[in-house]
Simulated scan of single mutants.
Amino acid sequence: MNRRIFLAGAAMAALSACSSKFRSYDGPRVTSIVVYKERRKLYLLHENQVLREFDFELGFAPVGHKKVEGDGRTPEGAYVIDRKNPNSSFHLSVGISYPNEADRAAAAALGLSPGGDIFIHGTPRLNRGDDDWTAGCIAVTNREIEDIYAMVDVGTPILIYP
């Protein structure tokens, strides 16, 4: 009986070690992220070399630059990765520094909030191929965000194009 309990515990420990969402990466440093919204392509680059390429889903209003909170758009422009969230509701996430000063000024001119909390994140459900669904974030699969989370450092520039 004790042997069975020990073996079951050892098997569970081994399986849980394999299923960790935290991966390691020891390749070339990611020096920038480039996103093409219309093409639905995200590239992790080391200088001019593409290290990884990902497909993604966007906000429920994918065309155009994010202007105000709740518009469902994904920002366009130059930002940086400003935080990593290991406790994301969307598996893992890396934060994008939206809004910048220009974004805040444009929203203020309209008398509205620019919003915030824009991330590259995983998904609580499998959506690949469905309509865009986020509130303005860039969504990849959970396995893909594990790789992105491991590869990208806070401070990495991200360029988001239409």
Rank of each mutant, 00 (worst) to 15 (best):
M1P: 03
N2R: 14
R3A: 15
R4Q: 12
R4W: 04
A8L: 14
A8Y: 06
A10V: 10
M12E: 09
A14Q: 10
A14M: 13
L15M: 14
A17R: 05
C18W: 10
C18D: 14
S19R: 13
Y25W: 11
P28C: 01
R29G: 00
R29V: 08
T31S: 12
T31V: 00
T31L: 01
I33G: 00
V34Q: 06
V34W: 09
V34R: 07
V35H: 01
Y36D: 10
K37R: 03
R39T: 00
R40E: 09
K41Y: 03
Y43L: 11
L44V: 02
L45A: 08
L45K: 13
E47K: 14
V50D: 04
L51S: 07
L51I: 05
R52K: 13
E57T: 06
E57Q: 15
F60S: 10
A61S: 06
A61G: 01
H65W: 01
K66L: 13
K66F: 07
K67G: 06
K67D: 00
K67C: 07
D71L: 00
D71Q: 05
G72N: 09
R73N: 02
Y79K: 05
Y79I: 05
K84P: 06
P86N: 02
S88E: 09
S89D: 11
S89E: 13
S89Q: 12
F90S: 11
L92A: 00
S93A: 14
G95T: 05
I96A: 03
Y98M: 01
Y98P: 05
Y98L: 00
N100P: 08
E101F: 10
R104V: 12
A106W: 02
A108R: 10
A108I: 04
A109L: 04
A109S: 12
G111V: 12
G111S: 05
G116W: 08
G116Y: 10
G116N: 11
D117K: 10
D117E: 08
D117M: 08
I118A: 04
F119G: 00
I120W: 07
G122K: 07
T123Y: 01
P124F: 06
R125D: 14
L126T: 09
N127P: 11
R128N: 11
R128K: 14
R128H: 13
G129C: 03
G129N: 05
G129V: 11
D130M: 14
W133E: 01
V140W: 07
V140A: 06
T141W: 09
T141Q: 06
N142I: 02
I145E: 03
I148T: 10
I148F: 02
A150H: 01
A150N: 11
M151W: 07
M151F: 09
V152S: 08
V154T: 12
G155I: 01
I158A: 10
I158F: 11
I160Y: 00
Y161M: 07
